[in-house]
Amino acid sequence: MPGPKGVPRAAIVALLGEGLSDKRIARILHVSPMRVSRTRRELDLPRFERTVTAVEQSWTDRTRPTDVGHLAWAGFWREGVHPVLKHQGTEYSARRLAFRLANGREPEGHVMAGCGWTPCVRPEHVEDQPMRDALRSQFTAIFGDAA
């Protein structure tokens, strides 16, 4: 069945093949969701079923390893400074999630990249306030107050 000029049925079929919802396809192609639904029925495809991914998987999907051992955040940045994961309508601090993955507990205070590279969210590189306090105490014990 032909559609509006410029939007071939094949484009709808291709996006249906990628597993997208009718509404999503309609937004992408600027067509009626009813047209997409009709095409789905004509192809005898099942209704779209929304799958829920765990927040940890969403976090992993937005990270990129670097060649020098860091894990760069490739997701959203709040105010250009804070890496944030938007997952199912909720925002999570990417560093706090990384901390929880590495340590199995919620962090206390601000979580920062202990390696010094701001975009890094590698779980082994993030530190919460008690960890930074302990490192500062150790540094002072070794080098004294003058350092």
Rank of each mutant, 00 (worst) to 15 (best):
T53C: 01
E49Q: 10
T66S: 15
L20Q: 09
S21R: 03
S32C: 13
E42R: 10
G116M: 02
S58E: 15
A94S: 07
P65Y: 05
V111R: 09
R27G: 12
V52C: 09
P107K: 09
L97H: 04
P119S: 05
L29Q: 07
A74C: 12
P119R: 00
T90Q: 11
L85Y: 08
P65G: 12
V81Q: 06
R100M: 02
M34W: 05
C120E: 02
E56Y: 10
F48P: 14
V55R: 09
R96C: 08
G19R: 01
D67L: 09
G19L: 04
E56L: 05
K23S: 13
V31P: 00
T90H: 10
E79N: 15
F99E: 08
S93F: 00
V52T: 14
R96D: 09
F76W: 13
E18H: 12
D61V: 04
D44V: 13
T118Q: 00
R38E: 11
P107E: 10
T39V: 15
A54S: 07
E42M: 03
R27K: 02
A113G: 11
L71V: 05
L97P: 07
R105C: 13
A113Q: 07
E49Y: 03
W77I: 06
R41L: 04
T66A: 12
R47W: 06
T51Q: 12
V31H: 00
R24Q: 13
E106R: 08
R41S: 09
G80N: 02
E56I: 06
T63P: 07
R41P: 01
G104M: 03
R50I: 11
F76A: 10
R62N: 14
R95P: 01
E106H: 08
P107I: 08
T63G: 13
D67E: 10
R40H: 13
A72N: 00
H70M: 02
